[in-house]
């Protein structure tokens, strides 16, 4: 096991920069998730850690070694690919033992390691099958088996669950997390799914346009997003953003007049964006008067879209809502439910 340190890592394709000086530290045994929208550079960054992409500048360390110029095979990492990348012409057993075979492992040693990995991942009865004879979930487990069999210092996962259906994804999420708990190997996991990131990570790195937007524990990111991008990206449905003015301890916007304990009374007028998570809206509170435009009962909760004089907001409520489109409701916000962002810099304002 080892820590992974990225210092000022940059990547350029020709004259086009795609990663702009990224600093990330994954501690020994930590499960770090890189999350962000498509094209934000998270997979490129992972491939740079794997050695499948060159690093334009900066330093990448695995343990105490600088590995910038090392081949993937010399970095002591294992990677699980999005489409599993199992060798179609080899059985599960050969797929899993292939890397050990090429690193000079003896037959007995390879057989033992494959058996060990197969037992952990419940693959023992599938060892003689070919990848084409396996289901999506089984293939995913074989891909993980191929990674763990070598006992590498770092596991890299590149959106490994994106090809699975929703139910299987939830099951595999738990399986990967259990595996990490057992093996305690440093893991860097790329996903665009913020639910995966929130449920699996010890530490989340939110990326946007080739830069790190925020690094932190899942709930820290949820509770105190550093900027508007993170606030909007983490949480589902997304946070509501309302342009308005803070003055004398109150946030006002058309149809909204909220008390803002975080700002002192007497503060001069300031343009800000107020972010409110859908689940932090309360029906029957004070401060927002809005017309119901859509009611979506989900069973466990109800999602309601409200029209405001300028734009719409979404609320999620645990209770079943009797309201129907056209009704006017008054809404409040739970304590500490308002996040404020500067409209010019998009940064969080305390």
């Amino acid at each position: 096991m080892a820590n992974v340190t990225l210092s000022q890592i940059k990547k350029q394709y020709g004259n086009t920069p795609v990663i702009h000086g990224v600093d990330i530290e994954a501690a020994d045994g930590e499960f770090v998730v890189l999350v962000g929208p498509s094209g934000c550079g998270k997979s490129t960054l992972l491939r740079m850690i794997a050695g499948l992409e060159t690093i334009s500048s900066g330093t990448l360390k695995i343990g105490d070694r600088i590995v910038n110029d090392l081949d993937p095979k010399d970095r002591d990492i294992a990677m699980v690919f999005q489409n599993y990348a199992l060798y179609p012409h080899m059985t599960v057993e050969t797929n899993m033992g292939f890397s050990l075979e090429h690193r000079g492992g003896t037959k007995t040693e390879i057989a033992e390691r494959v058996k060990w990995a197969a037992e952990i991942l419940d693959l023992s009865n599938l060892l003689k099958r070919y990848p084409r004879q396996l289901s999506g979930g089984q293939r995913q487990r074989v891909a993980m088996g191929r990674a763990i069999v070598r006992d590498p210092q770092v596991f890299l996962f590149d959106e490994p669950l994106s090809n699975l259906d929703a139910k299987l994804r939830v099951a595999m999420r738990a399986e990967i997390k259990n595996l990490h708990r057992k093996l305690k190997t440093t893991t860097i996991y790329v996903t665009h799914d913020q639910v995966e990131a929130m449920t699996m990570a010890d530490k989340i790195v939110v990326m946007n346009a080739g830069e790190v937007s925020q690094v932190g524990a899942p709930l820290d990111l949820y509770d105190r997003p550093a900027n508007r991008f993170v606030a909007g990206f983490i949480g589902s449905p997304s946070m509501n953003f309302i342009d308005g003015v803070v003055e004398n301890g109150r946030f006002t916007a058309p149809g909204i007049d909220l008390e803002t304990p975080s700002f002192t009374a007497g503060e001069t007028s300031r343009q800000l964006i107020c972010g409110i998570r859908p689940e932090h809206l309360v029906i029957g509170g004070e401060g927002i008067s809005a017309e119901v435009s859509l009611v979506e009962p989900m069973g466990s909760e109800t999602q309601v879209t409200f029209s405001l004089p300028e734009g719409t907001i979404v609320g999620v409520f645990r209770d079943r809502i009797a309201a129907k489109p056209g009704d006017i409701l008054t809404l409040g916000v739970q304590t500490d439910g308002c996040h404020f962002f500067d409209p010019l810099t998009d940064l969080r304002v305390e």
Partner: peptide
């Protein structure tokens, strides 16, 4: 041929010619 197969082989420790011989050619 999916490039990931060859990338997986690189991570598994194979050089260019071995990838050709053991992965690409049999497929």
């Amino acid at each position: 041929l999916p490039i990931e197969l060859e990338e997986a082989a690189r991570v598994d420790g194979l050089g260019r010619f071995t990838i050709f011989r053991k992965i690409a050619l049999p497929l």
